[in-house]
């Protein structure tokens, strides 16, 4: 994994510090051109990996960059699923309706793979079909790491349904030939659970920042876990939703021995360049 990964929250109005800012961002990134423009700025600054959700808009971005030679070295780390899509479907259509909508093909057709799986209530196969469907939009694009979104990782973790985490891991590795990653707000708990299920040195992306924002279990336990280097680790929410000044925030994560990559999102050339330079600068200093 590259040291610096570029995130997509800003494009979809996800802002953890202000609902008002999130609305302004939604308005600004209404067109795909506006998103591509910011991705180009990130590439100019030497950031070549874009970590993004399987939002419909990302599908459109993929269509634009797929055959464009300018983006041939560009790497995407898909994060799935785009949870709101499913949450809205669950409210509107119920469990059965949601499965019908998102499992490809007719689930009532017992000649189709999805139909057989549905009849047998084979949830693992249904999940595999849904993973494959989510990944379709990235066809022809380099996606070496494929992530499970935190809302799903943490839900399965809490429900103790570890076998689905293992299923995702194995399916991404064997069928998609990529490294499976797990996004979480519960790093120590998840790591322990994955290890218990036989997954050693997993790839994890977790909220890591100086003030302990969204770090379940607290800063001390996180720092200890990071030092043990039991996983390939990406730090996200480094700025703690804007609560920390950039310099202090990046210095903290760069000095944690055991963090491989740092994920951040920004919309302006100034902020992208400043953040990238800070990470480069602090990463060069000995820990």
């Amino acid at each position: 994994m590259d040291r610096v990964l570029f995130g997509d929250n800003q494009f979809f109005g996800v802002n953890h510090s202000s609902d008002e800012k999130s609305r302004a961002q939604t308005i600004r990134f209404q067109t795909n051109a506006a998103i591509l423009n910011v991705l180009d700025i990130a590439r100019d600054e030497g950031i070549n990996t874009f970590m993004c959700t399987t939002h419909d808009r990302i599908g459109q971005i993929c269509d634009i960059i797929r055959d464009n030679p300018r983006y041939q070295d560009f790497t995407i780390y898909p994060c799935m699923p785009y949870a709101h899509k499913y949450a809205n479907a669950l409210t509107e259509l119920g469990v059965l309706g949601t499965i019908k909508q998102f499992v490809p093909g007719n689930i009532f057709n017992t000649f189709a793979k999805g139909g057989v799986a549905f009849m047998k209530k084979d949830f693992a196969t249904l999940a595999e079909l849904m993973i494959d469907a989510e990944l379709k939009m990235f066809r022809g694009i380099n996606t070496p790491v494929i992530w499970m979104q935190n809302v799903i990782t943490d839900l399965l973790l809490g429900l103790g349904m570890t076998d689905f985490l293992v299923k995702f891991h194995d399916h991404v590795k064997t069928k998609h030939n990529a490294e499976p990653g797990f996004i979480t707000m519960n790093l120590p708990y998840l790591l322990e659970t994955l290890e218990g299920a036989g997954i050693k040195q997993p790839t994890i992306c977790a909220s890591i920042n100086k003030i302990g924002f969204r770090m379940s279990g607290g800063v001390e336990l996180y720092e200890k876990t990071i030092r043990q280097k039991r996983c390939n680790l990406v730090a996200m929410q480094v700025l703690a939703a804007g609560a920390l000044p950039a310099s202090e925030a990046f210095e903290y994560v760069c000095k944690q021995d055991g963090i491989d990559s740092i994920l951040f999102g920004a919309s302006s050339r100034g902020n992208i360049s400043h953040s990238k330079n800070l990470i480069d600068q602090y990463s060069k200093q000995p820990i």
Binding site: H16, S17, S18, V151, D154, L155, G158, M185, N186, Y189, I211, G212, F213, R214, M215, S216, G217, G218, A240, A241, G242, A243
Partner: peptide, 14 residues
């Protein structure tokens, strides 16, 4: 901001 006003939890979901 929320970050200054919120205490951490042992398990975070949504």
């Amino acid at each position: 901001y929320l970050t200054d006003l919120t205490e951490g939890v042992n398990y975070y979901l949504r």
